[in-house]
C-alpha cells in the first residue's frame, strides 16, 4: 500500500515534472528538425554540448550566460549537422552518429583545457527558483508550486509557442511543406535549404537548452555522460507525440514520470540498476507499440538536391 502511494505521491510528481523538461526540450527540437525533413540523431551530442557549455557559462557568468552559451553551442553544433546533411547530403543518420562521437571527445578536451580534468566541471549555482504565489501556500501543493526552475514554465511556454509557429505562421507552413514535398515547395519559391537549416538550427537551440537544464538546474555542474541517452529518448518522444509539440509534451511527461520513478522508488525490491534503465525500457516499449500508428513527414530523412544533373 505504501509502495502504491509512493507511485503517485506529489513529491514524485514534482520530480517527474523536473525530469520531463530535458526530454521535452530536445523532443521539441526534434519536431522542428524533422518537420523540415531532417532526422537529427545528433541530438544527444548537441545536448552534451549544451550540458558542457551551460556549466561553463554559468561558472563564469551566471545561469543566464550559461543558458545562452548552451543555446549558442547547440546552434553551432547543429549547423555542422546542417552542413553535412542538407548541403553535402551525407546520410543523415551517419552525420548524427558521427556528431555524437565528436561531442564526447570535444567536451572532454574542453573540460581538460578549462578545468584540468576530463569528466566534470566545478559546482555551479543555478537559477533562482520560482514559487507560484497562491499555490505555494497550500501545503499539499507545495512540492510542485514552490522552488521550481524558471526553465520549467519556459519549456511549457515553448511548447505552446512551437505549436502556434508550426500551425499559424508562414514559416511553419513552409517548414512543414519542405518536410513533406521539398520539390513542390521549391517550385513555388520556398527556399528549401533555408527552411531546413532553420529547422535544424532551432532543434540545436532547443537541445542545447535541454542540456543546459541538465547541468545548470539538475546537476549543478557538468558531469560526463549526464545526458544518459536522453537525446535518443527525445526522438522516441517526438515519434510517440506524432511529430507535434503537444504530443511531444505528453510523451516526454511519460518518460519524465518513469525517470522520476527510477530515482524515487527504492521501496520496491528491484535492483537499482534496473530502475535506472526504466526510461530506456519504456522507450523501447513505446517504439514497439506505437510507431506504426504515427505518420512521419513524407520527406523525412530524404536529402534534397536542387538539380540532379547528369
Amino acid at each position: 500500500m505504501e509502495t502504491l502511494a509512493s507511485l503517485f505521491s506529489l513529491a514524485l510528481l514534482a520530480s517527474a515534472v523536473r525530469l520531463t523538461v530535458p526530454v521535452l526540450l530536445a523532443a521539441l527540437g526534434a519536431v522542428f528538425s524533422e518537420r523540415g525533413g531532417v532526422i537529427n540523431i545528433g541530438l544527444e551530442g548537441i545536448m552534451i554540448m549544451g550540458t558542457f557549455f551551460g556549466a561553463v557559462g554559468t561558472y563564469y557568468g551566471g545561469p543566464v550566460v550559461g543558458l545562452l552559451a548552451a543555446v549558442a553551442a547547440g546552434v553551432v553544433f547543429s549547423a555542422v549537422h546542417g552542413l553535412l546533411a542538407i548541403t553535402l547530403r551525407v546520410d543523415q543518420i551517419i552525420s548524427g552518429v558521427v556528431l555524437n562521437m565528436l561531442a564526447v571527445g570535444l567536451a572532454r578536451f574542453l573540460n581538460i583545457m578549462l578545468f584540468g580534468v576530463a569528466t566534470q566541471s566545478p559546482g555551479i549555482r543555478g537559477f533562482t527558483p520560482l514559487s507560484i504565489p497562491v499555490l505555494r501556500d497550500i501545503p499539499a501543493l507545495k512540492p510542485i508550486a514552490a522552488g521550481i526552475s524558471p526553465l520549467i514554465p519556459l519549456a511549457l511556454a515553448l511548447v505552446v509557442a512551437g505549436h502556434w509557429v508550426l500551425v499559424r505562421t508562414t514559416f511553419g507552413l513552409r517548414l512543414r511543406a519542405v518536410g513533406e514535398n521539398p520539390l513542390a515547395a521549391d517550385t513555388v519559391g520556398v527556399n528549401v535549404f533555408l527552411m531546413r537549416y532553420l529547422g535544424v538550427l532551432i532543434s540545436g537551440a532547443l537541445a542545447g537548452m535541454a542540456g543546459a537544464y541538465l547541468s545548470i538546474e539538475q546537476g549543478r555542474g557538468y558531469l560526463e555522460g549526464m545526458t544518459q541517452g536522453r537525446g535518443f529518448i527525445a526522438l522516441a518522444a517526438m515519434i510517440f507525440g506524432n511529430w507535434w509539440p503537444v504530443g511531444a509534451l505528453g510523451a516526454s511527461a511519460l518518460f519524465g514520470y518513469f525517470d522520476a520513478l527510477s530515482l524515487r522508488v527504492v521501496a520496491l525490491n528491484v535492483p537499482y540498476q534496473f530502475l535506472n534503465v526504466l526510461p530506456h525500457i519504456v522507450t523501447i516499449l513505446v517504439l514497439a507499440g506505437f510507431v506504426r500508428r504515427a505518420r512521419p513527414p513524407a520527406a523525412d530523412g530524404i536529402p534534397y538536391a536542387k538539380e540532379e544533373q547528369g
Binding site: R176, A177, E180, L183, A185, T187, V188, A298
Partner: peptide, 8 residues
C-alpha cells in the same frame, strides 16, 4: 507530376 502536398 503534381507539385502538391497531400497532407495540406
Amino acid at each position: 507530376h503534381f507539385m502538391l502536398i497531400p497532407r495540406f
